[in-house]
Write a protein that binds this DNA or RNA. Structure first.
Lengths: 145, 145
DNA sequence: TAGAAAGTCGACTAACTTAATCAAGTTACT
DNA sequence: AGTAACTTGATTAAGTTAGTCGACTTTCTA
């Protein structure tokens, strides 16, 4: 049930950029703040760029910044884009469902996995980068009304 | 955020045994029901045995059965025993915590991981094998009162 | 306009994990 | 004695993770 370091590091980078809001931040500065090597960050930032989360400027005084406002960046989407489905098993994944023959005979595990998927997805899909920056990750969730 | 097939298969095997309650069930019969190869099941059943979930009888007419009643087998414990901590990051793991230097500077991600850990652990630690057999996995959780 | 700063891109790799498979046992029933 | 059945440890093939490397392109500035 782990989050991979790629997802973790991507979120660290987004947080670092979110704290500077509009300025360009260079990889080596992001590296200092996130404790991730420049070379690995480079790879991760390219992924973030290709998925439309950040924009970059090359050359002297270049760097990265967020493409959208932090309140429009949804953590669940970032994690799915960077490391794949949130569901614990593909038989309960909305975004990448795979058939399992046990479904036909009334699998007794599927409802459990579905519940986990729902809880995790609900939480991450209702948390934005701004929530992280505000340290506002409790409450405010759909099923707690 | 995946459950490994080892954990999934172990739970399938426990369910198969739980349905027979007291009889000895042979690996090849568990294999038919769970759709897991006999040879891989063999390995998994040994793990389940070493962790005290099942007992076996060798020789002709041997097989496996549950060591305890299904209502005493907690799914969270099975998963932790078979595939490790439930926490999405080791910095929020109760059972296998590991220090992360970002903690000292107020990591903004840790509260999120902690919340996920709490939700998943709460769910799995309040679900027993009997609940799975009864298809009774909703409600009845501590934070829903 | 040369040179340095900074991002880009693709290939590569070492270590680890997963998911098995295999072979050679040991035990116990008939 | 024979065979069904569990036991154990070694091995392996494939995939993933977490990087590393090197050559390249763009852009600013002196």
């Amino acid at each position: 049930m782990k989050i991979s370091s790629k997802g973790e590091y991507a979120l660290r980078a987004l947080i670092a950029l979110g704290r500077k809001e509009e300025e360009l931040v260079q990889i080596k500065d992001i590296s200092k703040e996130t404790l991730v090597s420049s070379q690995y960050l480079e790879q991760i930032l390219l992924h973030l760029k290709s998925h439309g989360y950040v924009i970059s400027k090359r050359g002297v005084n270049g760097g990265y910044k967020l493409k959208e406002a932090p309140e429009r960046i949804v953590i669940g989407k970032v994690i799915r884009d960077l490391e794949g489905p949130l569901a614990p098993m593909s038989c309960v994944s909305i975004t990448s469902y795979e058939y399992c023959p046990l479904e036909d005979q009334g699998c007794m595990l599927k409802p459990l996995w579905a519940l986990i998927r729902d809880e995790v997805a609900d939480l991450l899909d209702h948390t934005t980068l701004q929530d992280l920056l505000d340290r506002n990750i409790n409450k405010k969730r759909s099923d707690r009304k």
